[in-house]
Design a protein around this nucleic acid. Structure first.
Lengths: 124, 124
DNA sequence: TGACATCTACGAAACTCTTCGTATATAATA
DNA sequence: TATTATATACGAAGAGTTTCGTAGATGTCA
């Protein structure tokens, strides 16, 4: 099945790829600030290629890797997973936990409120 | 460290315990609808006892297990984890993904709005 | 009491994830 | 060209998770 989610190490690498765009192993390594050794990152990128999480360009000697899914897509998948696993599918509770888990600035609250306004307009 | 999160199987068992309250292995099994075998549930409950996720009462022959943390506590931990791992700590984005991941009813939206109102009142 | 059901305990197998050592190929340089 | 640096590929170790078979203890009932 392809509905599996990236592991922690894979997610950390994806973050680097999303920030940098297409990158070599070394570039990913640097971006990650030496949190894992070079061969470890290489190995995981190879696994991710096999899983279809990244795309590999072997033209140059240093292969260039690229995320195959957007950050938004992956985030949606992770949220959905957490939703069914721990929140009985209730988005409302997840949102409430997210808002109470960490202080949220007034600007952020306003942005969320605006999103809710739009959703209420669309589905009255 | 004790800031580790329950695994999937552990979370499924916790859900059963939260719904039923203190329960025996068999009761947890039934509640879970035969998704895992009896000895599997027993084994994981033993591991969870060792980890401190559940409390065990050995008075009766069939030991009685009880969750040691509330559903809310665990949810908060999971949300925080997801927040740092996949959302760069931005609650706003997590909320937005949660709201767009699954259709949310008007009642739920209203409840969330109310929560935002309260938070804005408290931190102006 | 004897047969049977049910419980805990234990351990091993199968699997995934993460890490790293090492071998090998290729480019750059003195 | 010979040396050095850097790349990929491969495999295996170690940890954690999940599963289940089996052994042994304890309760129930004809």
């Amino acid at each position: 099945m392809s509905d599996s989610h990236p592991t922690n190490a894979e997610l950390a690498i994806l973050q680097a790829l999303w920030r940098r765009g297409p990158s070599t192993v070394r570039e990913v390594c640097d971006e990650m600030g030496r949190s894992s050794g070079y061969t470890t990152v290489l190995k995981i990128l190879q696994i991710m290629t096999q899983k279809g999480l990244v795309q590999r360009d072997k033209s140059d000697r240093a292969h260039v890797y690229q995320a195959r899914h957007s950050e938004e897509q992956i985030q949606r998948g992770l949220v959905n997973d957490l939703l069914t696993k721990a929140f009985r599918g209730s988005s409302q509770r997840l949102v409430m936990r997210a808002l109470s888990a960490k202080p949220v600035s007034a600007e952020e609250l306003a942005a969320i409120r605006k999103l809710i306004d739009e959703m209420e307009d669309k589905a009255p």
